[in-house]
Design a protein around this nucleic acid. Sequence first.
DNA 1: ACACCACGGTTCAAATTTGAACCGCTGTGA
DNA 2: TCACAGCGGTTCAAATTTGAACCGTGGTGT
Lengths: 148, 148
Amino acid sequence: MRAWLAFMPAATLVGRELDRQLKEDTGLSHLQYEILIHLDEARQGAMRMTELAERLVNSKSGLTYQIGQMEKAGLVTRRQCEWSKSGVLAEITPEGRAMLERAAPGHVDKVREILIDVLTPEERRAIAEGLGRVRDRIIERNDGEACW
Amino acid sequence: MRAWLAFMPAATLVGRELDRQLKEDTGLSHLQYEILIHLDEARQGAMRMTELAERLVNSKSGLTYQIGQMEKAGLVTRRQCEWSKSGVLAEITPEGRAMLERAAPGHVDKVREILIDVLTPEERRAIAEGLGRVRDRIIERNDGEACW
DNA sequence: ACACCACGGTTCAAATTTGAACCGCTGTGA
DNA sequence: TCACAGCGGTTCAAATTTGAACCGTGGTGT
């Protein structure tokens, strides 16, 4: 029960804090940053919309919106998937990569500062294990059903 | 780092799942449920807006909005604070308490099901301790500054 | 009593999120 | 080849969130 009382507030606070730092330093929202990270990691720097949405734990329509914003800002492009006429690839642009390079160091520092460094090694392990399991359980449970 | 990769997604998923269950079973959002809980626990069943906002880790304007909605729904009332002409108390109504009684069992079950029961006792302890510390650190760090 | 600044809440417009409806593809079976 | 169910994305309106500006009070110092 105490775990519960710590978990959600901590998540909210950490999220808010990171959002703030990113927005202040780079103008990016946390979600936009995550989008860039995922695209940057993908081979070709591109990914299907739906897959991206799933990895980000975000709704499809929400992603459409954000990609729209980021396209305006020149950070990503939309491109048709080669082998399927429906199907859209979001691709990171050079500007997007540049932005990421500018944003990443500060962001990573912040994560360390407010989360990682506050935890003992074995707390980190417990969180990685335990919450990882929590996450996977929910994902897998929802997999059969309709998505958001 | 793995802790980080588990933490935020787990929080998002758990939040979404609870929101869904509550909305489906009772029509309440998670935030509204939390509001009722906090008011119900307060003596007199009432609390100052700002204090409530702080406890909920929510913005003041957001709270104003939600209390407005819940007032329309008859779950809470607004009342002037006795000893201060500015200052508003949000108070839970009998309907609000009834709603809470209807909502609580299912909600608590869900929390156990998707979070508590998935964790080992010592993971729970580590999360309570560690994330509790994370939470308190951020709160206290922000205390001096302007709030949201 | 007066000037002022901080506090408690609300308001307002803009940004974002949500969920359902929709539209053009895909591929599967008759 | 012809439905037709289901997927991938987008659109749309409605709900919510955000952050800054604002308004009346409270307390402080003079």
